[in-house]
């Protein structure tokens, strides 16, 4: 066992502080990886992410697709024998990746999150149609998945006009830079 005090503690220490996770706990049992519904879309298994943190491989970790593909369904954390909150770790790693300005290997996922927050900033609530249109425009790919979009419009699952919050001052205050 490599205890972090003797190894490369900088990155592990920083992430531990941000997320409240003690990386010494991980046994590398791979329960998280075996149960993850989305592992096919990840370039590193969740247990390997923890191992890389133990080794201080900050940049490598922050550039993985894993930290963006994880949706936080908690299948891993509910099965982890050492009760490690892996989705909380992924949140922390995403923030660190954005703070450090590393290249994001999953631009579509980031694009989607940004468009969601754009509509929340504008209306106080999400507006799916606008999210989809702007997401597609930014991706410069208007036609893939068109069938699903049309089906949703036909079934009136995409409202044409957004539902809005009345007190938009309060929403502006939330999105103001401190």
């Amino acid at each position: 066992m490599i205890l972090l005090d003797d190894g490369c503690p900088d990155f592990a220490g920083e992430m531990g502080e941000k997320t409240g996770i003690d990386f010494n706990r991980c046994l590398q049992c791979k329960t998280c990886a075996n149960g993850c519904p989305f592992i096919d879309g990840m370039d590193q298994a969740p247990n390997r992410i923890i191992r890389m943190i133990q080794f201080g491989m900050a940049e490598e970790v922050l550039k993985t697709s894993t930290i963006w593909v994880c949706v936080g369904c908690n299948t891993c954390s509910s099965a982890c024998p050492m009760a490690i909150d892996i989705p909380a770790l992924m949140d922390g790693l995403r923030h660190a990746a954005l703070d450090r300005g590393v290249e994001i290997p999953e631009p579509d996922i980031l694009n989607f999150h940004q468009e969601v927050l754009n509509t929340v900033k504008k209306y106080g609530r999400t507006h799916k149609l606008e999210i989809m249109m702007r997401y597609k425009l930014k991706k410069m790919d208007l036609f893939s998945d068109m069938g699903v979009g049309l089906k949703m419009l036909k079934k009136r699952k995409l409202d044409l006009t957004p539902s809005r919050v009345k007190d938009m001052k309060a929403i502006e205050k939330i999105f103001q830079e401190p």
């Binding site: 299948t75 989607f112 997401y135």
Partner: peptide
């Protein structure tokens, strides 16, 4: 089992 949430938009295959 998780339904895939927003990966439905950004990663439809998954």
């Amino acid at each position: 089992r998780c339904c895939g949430t927003y990966l439905s938009v950004a990663k439809p295959d998954i």
